[in-house]
Design a protein around this nucleic acid. Structure first.
Lengths: 139, 139
DNA sequence: AATATTTTGCAACAAAGTTGCATTGTTGTA
DNA sequence: TACAACAATGCAACTTTGTTGCAAAATATT
């Protein structure tokens, strides 16, 4: 896995550092989306808060991760598919946030339906975010 | 308009105060969604920050306004349609956030398409947020 | 009008995010 | 491998954003 991670960093012309490897592997391991706070909890002993801010920002700019809008002022981040290039994201899948456990999923099976907007409105990015209970929290 | 505003407050069993009337009229006047910061800028001389936080919270709980998720850690709020009851929102319309001017629109003409989720995922709320350039910022 | 209830402002605090700069780590080249 | 050039990190200081308790003021109820 370590090989895969350094490959991703190299592909995006980023120098390979401990912080970047660790944060990238966190995304890989959990599989789900992470908020800044999640990452801070899981690596606060290893890295400074500021480093996490800067690393996430870099990853977004390079197209390694993308943001997921939320209503609770804690933006989530998730790994992009390979097709994501720097500054141009293709994340047409649905995101699901569980009200119970807070886990944020990328629902890859479902893609975001195209929507016709009124005249003059030009869509660049479309986010479909669904909240409710996930398959682990249902009774 | 003042009459309409007090009517809304009364309908939701809220006491009629200066802060609530002012904040509600801000939503009415602008027509678009507002972030906490927007409201603070437009009324900081009239009210304390804390009052704005508490008022927005109350309005959401009572179903007067609803939240719009964003990727920039500044949740937007917009007026609900009449059908919104306390704790149970029906905001099936699309939201549009302009990357240029930051204005957030409720696109009432378009409704959010229903989406089939994988087994075990139970949708409670669906938000479709589109970003790009609005009809005032297009060249 | 008087009292009960709710809302507000203030203060103090906690959490989240930003910036500049010296230090450390990484990369490419000799 | 060692060196220079460059980039990333940690730290400190700071700004902004959000929270809580409580006394004072405003609103509602009778």
């Amino acid at each position: 896995m370590q090989a895969k991670i350094t490959e991703i960093l190299r592909k995006h012309q980023l120098s390979i550092t401990e912080a970047r490897k660790k944060i990238l592997s966190l995304f890989w391991e959990t599989g789900n989306a992470l908020a800044h706070g999640d990452i801070e909890q899981k690596s606060s002993e290893d890295f400074d808060r500021v480093t996490i801010y800067r690393t996430l920002q870099t990853f977004v700019e390079k197209g390694i991760i993308h943001t997921i809008p939320t209503s609770d002022n804690s933006v989530r981040y998730a790994l992009c598919k390979d097709e994501c290039a720097a500054g141009h994201h293709h994340d047409d899948h649905v995101h699901f946030i569980c009200d119970d456990c807070g886990t944020t999923y990328c629902i890859d099976e479902v893609s975001v339906p195209k929507v016709k907007l009124p005249k003059g409105f030009n869509a660049v990015q479309t986010d479909l975010v669904i909240s409710g209970t996930c398959n682990k929290c249902e009774q």
